[in-house]
Design a protein around this nucleic acid. Structure first.
Lengths: 133, 133
DNA sequence: ATATAACCTAGTAAGTTAGTGTGTTAAATG
DNA sequence: CATTTAACACACTAACTTACTAGGTTATAT
């Protein structure tokens, strides 16, 4: 189950996509509109900046804005950045240590099949798809 | 991400499906074959019994066996029984309290769409599909 | 009677989640 | 240059979940 981090990140991105793309939007405004603690959003937004999905400037008139247009972001990359991995099982996550049962595992093909389905869904779903709805 | 509970439950079910369907299989044997702590499996197996997916008898010659044939179990019902819900977000879980943002939520349609995809996948995948592979 | 195996209740260390608190730095405005 | 605004940084925490373990009691076949 996806946590608030990934879900809130998506909401921040959607919020930014709905604002003037040339203006920096202060986090305070996003927090109020989305009704999420600004303090908590700081953590999330930090990751979004680190991942270069948004850019921030300090000081008066500062805030955050998207670095690209909404069609250029996939939901998958936003969630993955915040959640670490969207793999259904630990052994399929990118940083997973090799499972000793890999060769005999009766469930691995199913997990892999589902993971492909999931990636297909979330990486083809664009931020712009969510804004226009 | 699915936890060991759901994953181990699946492995127990697969293991049972591979044994003689008329014999009771002791948990000790399953634990050894699957290389999972017997003590931990007791917790998982208890849920499987509660959900009537398997039946157990005490005493010598006792153990567990499937109550139905492998084609009659879906992977979805096994995992759901152990994990509680396979919903991608909390607000879609059956016991979820109504979200106040439901009507304005830009992401809910996407989560719902994914949830349908997920249920479709796991409830149509049968235990027998995993055994014969 | 004994061996076997399910069944029951409880506890626990480690990790994760969803935050909060208290600052410091950077930039625009008067 | 002082003030305001806002990002950025670091630390802390309560509650919950995960993945177990411990120590029994009850049921059944030989």
């Amino acid at each position: 189950m996806f946590s608030t981090k990934g879900r809130y990140a998506l909401r921040v991105m959607i919020d930014l996509a709905q604002q003037n793309p040339d203006e920096y939007v202060p986090l305070k405004d996003i927090a109020e509109r989305q009704d999420i603690s600004k303090k908590y959003l700081e953590i999330i937004v930090k990751d979004l900046v680190r991942g270069k999905l948004i850019a921030g400037v300090s000081g008066k008139g500062g805030g955050y804005k998207l670095t690209k247009s909404p069609e250029e972001y996939s939901v998958g990359q936003i969630i993955e950045l915040l959640e670490g991995s969207i793999a259904p099982v630990a052994c399929l996550a990118k940083d997973a240590k090799k499972c000793p049962r890999e060769e005999v595992c009766k469930t691995l093909p199913m997990w892999t099949e589902f993971y492909e389905l999931e990636k297909d869904f979330f990486f083809n779903k664009k931020l712009s798809d969510l804004v226009n709805s």
